[in-house]
Computed example of a mutant assay.
Amino acid sequence: MKAVIRLQLMLIGVYSVKLSCDGREDGAQCYGALGGAVDLMLVDNVSEIPRFNWRKNSSTILRWRNSTVYNTKESRFLFFPSNGTVRISNLIRTDSGEYKLELNDKDGKKTGRRTLQLYVQAPMSSVQLVSECLSQGQMKVSCLSEGGDSPQYSWTLDGHILTDSELLSRNYENNIIVLRQNISGHLICSVTNQVSYSFNQMNISGCGLSHLLILGLRATVVILPLTGMSLYFTWRRKKCEKADDSAVSQIIEDLDNSVLMIEMKSPTQ
C-alpha cells in the first residue's frame, strides 16, 4: 500500500552566486551564469602595461594601447582600467571557451601570455520535494530541480547530513532517498552548481504505525463498498438465474399435464 503525501513546504530559495574570477593565473577556470554577467580580472596594474591583446580563438576582443582601450567586440564586453577587470554581460552559450591574454612592451615585443577557460552554465530555478509513505513504514522523498546545468544535490536533517541510521537508501542518479521508519525532523534538499544555489525544505513526521493504520482505514472505506456492490450484483444474478430455472420447469410441467389430459380422454371416444 502506498500513498503520496505532499507535505507543507516551508521555504523555497533560489540564489545566484556572485560571479567574479581571478584570471591573472595562467589556466584559470571561470564560470558565468547564462543571461547574467561575470567579472574577469586580467591584470594587476594596467598603467604599467603598455600594450595587451585579449582574444578568444582567433578573434580579438580588447586592445590596450598607451592607456587607451579599444573594444573590437560588441558592447557586452567592458574593460575597467581602474582594476584591470573585463565584464561580460548578458552571457550566452557561445561565450564559453578559452580566452588568451598577450602582453607586450611599448615596442610590441611579447612579454607574457596567459589563458583562462570560461564556462557558461544555466542557473537553477526551483526545487520541489515530494514524499511518499511505503508499505513498511519507510518514507521515500524525491528532490526535483528545474533547469540548471550540472546540478549537485545534498540532504540535511535538522542541520546535519543524513546518517546511515536515518537513511535506508539513496539513488544518486534520480536523487531519491528512502528514510527509515519513524524518522522525523526538518528536511532540506539543496541543489547547487558553479553559478547558483537553490533549496527547498519541509517538516516530516515519519510514516509510523498510526499513519499506516489511517491508510488502511482509508483503503477499507474504499474496498468495502466495492465488495458490497460486487456481492449484491452476484446475488441478483443468481436470483435471476434461479427464477429463470423455475419458469422453465413450470412450462415443462404444464406441457406434461396437457399430454396426460389428452391421453385420459382418448378411450371414451
Rank of each mutant, 00 (worst) to 15 (best):
I252Y: 11
G108I: 06
G13D: 05
E173A: 14
T111H: 02
E48L: 15
K239L: 09
Q194L: 07
G32Q: 05
D26Q: 08
L168S: 12
G32P: 02
S125Q: 13
K242H: 08
T234R: 14
Y119I: 08
N200E: 03
K73F: 08
C133K: 00
G206I: 04
S142C: 04
T220K: 04
I183G: 02
Y99W: 06
G206L: 04
I61Q: 08
P81V: 01
P50C: 06
G112T: 03
T192V: 14
Y197V: 04
L129W: 03
Y31F: 15
H211N: 05
S126N: 11
D158G: 08
Q117W: 03
M10W: 02
I176S: 06
R24W: 01
F52H: 10
H160P: 00
G112L: 04
S165V: 08
S165T: 15
P123N: 07
V195E: 03
E132K: 12
S125G: 01
N57K: 15
Y172N: 11
R237K: 15
L118K: 07
K110Y: 00
V191E: 03
R93H: 03
S75P: 00
N182W: 02
S47I: 00
S47F: 03
T227Y: 10
R6G: 03
H186S: 05
L103I: 13
V222N: 11
Y99H: 11
D105C: 07
W235N: 15
S145C: 02
S198Q: 03
E98Y: 02
M124R: 11
R51V: 07
L255G: 12
G185S: 10
N90G: 13
S126G: 01
V259H: 09
S266R: 15
T68C: 00
S96D: 01
N193R: 11
I183M: 11
G147C: 05
R113M: 10
D158A: 07
I49S: 05
A243Y: 07
S249Q: 15
K242A: 14
V127T: 05
V259N: 11
Y119K: 13
L11E: 10
P225M: 08
F233P: 00
Q201T: 06
V17H: 09
E146R: 13
N104I: 00
V222L: 08
V259W: 07
T220Y: 09
V127P: 00
N53M: 12
S82E: 14
Y70K: 11
E48N: 13
G137H: 04
S246I: 09
D256M: 07
I214S: 12
P50T: 05
I262K: 13
S82D: 11
P50I: 01
E74C: 08
W155G: 04
Y70A: 10
T220D: 05
T60Q: 10
E48R: 14
V178E: 13
I204Q: 04
Q117D: 05
Y99N: 07
D149M: 10
S75E: 13
E102P: 00
L42E: 02
I188T: 13
C143Y: 03
T220L: 13
R55L: 11
Y119H: 14
T227V: 15
V38F: 01
R87F: 02
L129C: 03
M1N: 09
S47E: 12
E146V: 12
C30P: 02
V4R: 10
N175F: 09
E98W: 00
Y172G: 01
L78S: 02
D149Y: 07
